[in-house]
Nucleic acid binder design. Structure first.
Lengths: 241, 241
DNA sequence: CGGAATGTTGATATGCCTCAACTAAAGTGG
DNA sequence: CCACTTTAGTTGAGGCATATCAACATTCCG
């Protein structure tokens, strides 16, 4: 009998060591399950939510509304992630959260979470660490979009998504879900749609990966990581001692 | 008699409400003062520090070493900032920290800080909030470098630096320190040096600001904010209730 | 079956990067 | 204090890459 708590616990223990009482306390968190349709907004810029969400299945994205109507995607989130953890301490959303495919989430009241932190500081530290990794990913995105050539940039993005999916146990037969259109890739990677299309064709020719029909398949991880200058250190997911 | 603690307390109370006992507890934090030369690295990628730093004066920067030797600056930090707060929970540095001018810092042992969090959770929440604002700034940087035209991008950057300096009390006569070379601006804003030079000349012609000799002077804030599409909401610095 | 969304390809133009020369200012050492 | 070196900034020329516009192909979905 798996409850939504296990998905969160699994994610936190990817990088943090939690005691049995810590884990038991997490299990007592109240949560309401909800389904989100593809392309539905869950939070909008300016919202002041009173609960945070845990992704249970599917994929969410965070984005800014950039000048001239362009959408700038900032990050993508899979099972176990809490993409709006910041709302615990930052009142207003400075960006939006949407579902890029049909997804399931759990909603947890802020008060329940912060009370848990006071009772069990180590749980707070684990979630804090999660938000710090989040920030590390944003930093890498700055560098990716600002300093890497288009082919490298795309390869790096695929590596990151695949690596995180793998750590979460969502890779089967060298394949993970990545339900993005090329338009969305363009709005993520500071490129235009035709540019992404051509770069993708170039990448395909390296025979290191395939991206098609919402799935990412890896044929040669080492070669792809090299093309993308990908070093997973910034994800801070080494097993805790 | 101002001690380094006051600089940190001032920063935290910019956005968080701390009780008298909270503040008293912060004042008991041990700290070692240090001076850093211009262009000196304080932390390098891969380092595993056992203390965190508080900027007391001057300016620090964080950066990645990007492909082909390029340096990618990620953020800049002034008095009160704790640019390596993440090292409390992330063992290894995924980026470097350097001084962009002669600076003064205080070094505080991790154990002292985390013990304080356990004793006084609200202090932990305040510093957590600080790291979440940090992440919000990174997100805005992604959008700035990925979705805004060069002139807008530069104007937005100036607005952000000025606004933060203002909140920290470092603006005098519509002017703040910003000791960056054009080369560093280029390595921050995903541009080349000649491009920055020309964009800066264009910006100067708007008569909204001047950037010269390590100083940023604002003549027309509203006009510059408009050029830069700058909305300070993402800095989350409204006074706490 | 029709319409919308998605992806591919081509033509064109322009904006920015690279390279390079030069100026100006600042820092260094004799 | 001045000569020298280094660093910083400006300007110009040229070429390439990618954005934009547009047409078309294809798939998905109602």
């Amino acid at each position: 009998m798996q409850s939504w708590h296990d998905i969160l616990i699994r994610k936190l223990t990817e990088h943090s060591l939690l005691s049995r009482p810590d884990i038991a306390a997490i299990r007592r968190l109240p949560g309401v399950l909800r389904h989100i349709d593809k392309n539905e907004d869950i939070l909008r810029q300016g919202d002041k939510p009173k609960e945070s969400l845990v992704v249970l299945e599917g994929m969410l994205a965070r984005y800014h509304n950039a000048p001239s109507g362009r959408r700038q995607y900032l990050s993508f989130h899979i099972a176990g992630d809490m993409p709006d953890a910041q709302t615990l301490f930052l009142e207003r959303m400075d960006h939006a959260v949407c579902a890029v495919e049909k997804s399931g989430i759990a909603l947890v009241p802020h008060t329940a979470i912060t009370n848990l932190f006071k009772e069990r500081p180590e749980v707070g530290f684990a979630l804090w660490k999660e938000t710090l990794i989040d920030a590390a990913i944003f930093r890498e995105t700055i560098t990716n979009n600002s300093s890497r050539e288009p082919e490298m940039r795309l390869a790096h993005f695929f590596c990151e998504q695949y690596y995180r999916a793998e750590k979460t146990g969502l890779v089967k037969a060298n394949m993970c879900r990545l339900p993005l259109t090329q338009t969305q890739l363009a709005e993520t990677l500071a490129s235009s749609l035709p540019s992404i299309s051509r770069t993708l064709i170039k990448l395909r020719k390296t025979k290191t990966m395939e991206f098609d029909n919402g799935h990412l398949r890896i044929f040669n991880w080492n070669a792809l990581a090299k093309i993308g200058d990908f070093n997973p250190a910034y994800l801070h997911l080494e097993k805790p001692k």
